[in-house]
Design a binder for these strands. Structure first.
Lengths: 157, 157
DNA sequence: CTACTTGCAAATCATTTGCAGATGA
DNA sequence: TCATCTGCAAATGATTTGCAAGTAG
């Protein structure tokens, strides 16, 4: 029996915890309460976050020893491996964002207020593929990061 | 007397050490032998490098205590501030490349052999500006990073 | 002069690891 | 059962910092 399911002709995506479970099984890893709790917390709201912020959200569970700091780091790594989370480095710390269940996008980064604005451009991908083609390069993914000033910060100064 | 000079109508760029000297002066910082030696070493050949590799190149000077590890790090930071060096994070370590005296470009990164292939695309910048415009965002710079397999690695497997 | 710099040794600090006990399949 | 996990405490390792001595302007 397949783990994916559908309603009529509408493909329904698996909930993150399920999807991660598949990944774990495919690697001979185990589905543990800790990993489930961490994944649930991460995908309970769409946001960019770093390990420290995630750990804050898990405060209570950590206090009750239901989850520990090393396990959070270990699971973050597995989520990136699974392709469900995307990792980037901003000002020395690792920042994560949902890759699973969220459309691919790039960022405008305001260097004054540190805001991240998401955008998507099919044209950008077209050019990416054209350039890659010229180099006989096989694209797996890309990252476009534009630094500057957001609308608000431009006005303020 | 200006620090820039020209031959006929041809604008000649300042050598890196000079350019960095200007930057230092504009900040009330001092032009020291250490900073000069580090800048000379960095700009003596075009290449991507991390702090450790740079330190290897400075081996001799470090052994003679003409330059120290902390000063290398401090100077790298100043070079990035000055805009002469560009910093990126690759697999956990900071990698630097020349921004001064070298045309702007982006990268194709081979995830198998870790090769960095440079490319430039005016079209990419056009799209970048278009997207930024839609968000009333003022672009200061951008970084496009394409991950995948280079031509050689594609063939090998 | 004297404020900025440097080298040294020690400190940081996010992230990782060794291990013994716990647990999912 | 038993290989995989987890929490803990300790280790890492690249980068940073405090400080007394050195030096550019």
């Amino acid at each position: 029996m397949s783990k994916s399911f559908s309603l009529g002709s509408v493909q329904v995506k698996l909930p993150p915890v399920e999807r991660f479970g598949q990944f774990l099984q495919s690697r001979g890893k185990r589905i543990t309460r800790q990993r489930q709790r961490i994944v649930e917390t991460i995908f309970s709201h769409h946001d960019h976050f770093d390990a420290e912020e995630l750990i804050e959200h898990l405060q209570e569970l950590i206090a009750q020893r239901k989850v520990s700091r090393p396990t959070v780091y270990r699971t973050l790594g597995e989520l990136v491996e699974s392709g469900m989370l995307r990792k980037m480095v901003l000002g020395g710390r690792s920042v994560y964002e949902h890759e699973y269940g969220y459309p691919s996008h790039d960022h405008l980064y305001c260097q004054r207020c540190n805001k991240l604005i998401e955008f998507h451009s099919a044209e950008l991908e077209r050019i990416r593929d054209a350039v890659a083609g010229e180099h006989d390069f096989q694209v797996s993914s890309h990252r476009m990061f534009v630094t500057g000033l957001c609308a608000q910060c431009r006005r303020k100064r």
